[in-house]
């Protein structure tokens, strides 16, 4: 099993290649969208590079369960409902949702994921 450092280095390499950012920008706390400037199409590229780097398969919605955010059952007045949050937690055990939970605006979800979350996700896939 890969160590946390090994996973981080490979994730960093994938993000540097996909987003054309400097090595030094890719730190555990950096958010993918806000800090690293990832746009929606970049996630296609990132997913491909992670699959290749780690020999894993990432199906759509696994890393970014956006189907929950478009489901009226889980969204009300632009906010994710309690049951929606429960779904997100179940689907994203690798992500720290504590800050998002305080004011779960759908529009803020895109900027939720951090480099650390991505590393945690890869570790769950490798486990």
């Amino acid at each position: 099993m890969a160590s946390n450092d090994e996973v981080f280095e490979k994730v960093r390499e994938a993000l540097v290649d996909a987003l054309a950012v400097d090595d030094s920008d890719v730190v555990p706390g950096a958010t993918m969208v806000g800090d690293l400037g990832a746009e929606s199409i970049d996630f296609l590229d990132i997913v491909y590079r992670l699959e290749k780097a780690f020999g894993i398969s990432i199906s759509r919605g696994e890393l970014f369960p956006d189907d929950i955010l478009t489901n009226a059952e889980y969204v009300s007045d632009g906010k994710v409902t309690a049951s929606g949050l429960a779904q997100l937690k179940a689907r994203m055990p690798f992500a720290d949702l504590s800050k998002f939970e305080q004011n779960p605006l759908v529009q803020d979800f895109g900027n939720l994921l951090t480099v650390k979350d991505l590393c945690n996700y890869v570790q769950t896939k490798l486990a």
């Binding site: 296609l44 997913v47 290749k52 759509r60």
Partner: peptide
């Protein structure tokens, strides 16, 4: 093609 997803391809 190196990878194909429902929303695009590499």
């Amino acid at each position: 093609f190196l990878s194909q997803q429902v929303d695009g391809a590499i």
